[in-house]
């Protein structure tokens, strides 16, 4: 036994079928305890199904799911310590928010009522209102309140912040990070908004069509590529022959993300031509990895956007 802050997750050969649809296909995966792991994938890649299996919302068709070393299904020990918050809610819709908080606080030994009250204030939630009467954004905020205040050893937040406006989303990211640092635990964050959450992530899991495409710590992943910024002609010349993941142009300035490391000579050449080098944005890598044309063996496409002056 080792002392770690939070529950680890292990999936061994996990397959989940829904009729003819294969949501997860022989998934082998380890989520390290005490980390914030980003669960990234396109729509229908299996992120929500994976969260449901870990939280024992359903059982896999085949394979083994372990939470803190044990099967979570009907597990009296791990159940109070696993919190899955989905965009769909899973709260008592016709009970007031404060009654819902009482309900969740009574069921979770680690629930922090004072922190819940802080988050209710932060997201301007009225304790007397009912979830069924809330807007999508406020429902998301209430789910986040429950998810963070539960301080469960394993918290899975599945697209919970999509309904929030930008200021609320950034308030959520700040609250999550601050509370995680004060109370380390395992947090799995599933999202499409990769640019916004990538600063939070320590590990990254990319799912694609029910399979694990990549699982890696975020820092080493970022080191697998580089962003090159500078005059358009110089950038184009520098990246010629490399795998381009994404391109942005602003007037005569371009920023291109390429995959693969640079040699010392490459770095010197870039600097000599006035180019800035930076880490690879996870979003570009994600788009590249999950591009259907790349997956199907066709020529890889890369994201390109142009911002007119």
């Amino acid at each position: 036994m080792t002392a770690t802050p939070g529950y680890g997750v292990t999936l061994r050969g996990v397959t989940q079928r829904f009729g003819d649809t294969v949501a997860l296909d022989g998934v082998d995966l380890e989520i390290r305890p005490g980390t914030i792991t980003g669960l990234l994938g396109r729509n229908g890649s299996g992120k929500t199904t994976l969260g449901s299996l870990v939280a024992a919302f359903r059982r896999p068709t085949s394979g083994q799911v372990l939470v803190d070393g044990e099967d979570p299904w009907e597990n009296e020990r791990t159940a109070p310590g696993v919190c899955l918050v989905r965009e769909s809610g899973d709260v008592l819709d016709e009970d007031r928010l404060r009654d819902n908080l009482d309900f969740f606080a009574g069921a979770r030994p680690t629930f922090d009522r004072a922190f819940a009250a802080e988050l209710m204030d932060l997201f301007e939630l009225d304790p007397k209102s009912k979830p069924s009467k809330l807007s999508r954004g406020k429902k998301s905020a209430f789910g986040i309140t429950i998810g963070l205040a539960s301080r469960a050893p394993l918290t899975v937040l599945d697209e919970v912040h999509l309904g929030l406006d930008a200021p609320s989303r950034y308030a959520f990211y700040d609250a999550l990070l601050a509370d995680y640092l004060a109370h380390p635990r395992t947090i799995v964050l599933s999202s499409h908004l990769i640019e916004e959450i990538e600063r939070l992530l320590e590990d990254v899991v990319v799912l694609d069509r029910g399979r694990v495409l990549l699982t890696q710590d975020a820092d080493s992943l970022r080191a697998e590529g580089v962003s090159v910024t500078g005059p358009q002609d110089a950038v184009d010349a520098f990246v010629a022959g490399r795998t381009v993941l994404g391109t942005q142009r602003l007037g005569r300035t371009a920023q291109v993300t390429v995959r693969g490391g640079l040699t010392d000579a490459d770095v010197a050449r870039a600097r000599a031509t006035g180019l800035d080098l930076g880490p690879v944005p996870l979003q570009d890598l994600f788009v590249h990895l999950t591009d259907p044309r790349r997956r199907d063996g066709a020529a890889p496409a890369h994201a390109e956007s142009e911002v007119l002056p």
């Binding site: 002392a3 770690t4 529950y7 070393g69 009296e76 009574g106 069921a107 030994p109 680690t110 050893p153």
Partner: peptide, 18 residues
């Protein structure tokens, strides 16, 4: 199996009673 330190569930009233 591991034993977490900071956030492990402690003792609480019976879940059935709650």
């Amino acid at each position: 199996m591991t034993t977490a330190t900071a956030t492990r569930p402690g003792t609480q009233a019976s879940p059935t009673r709650h």
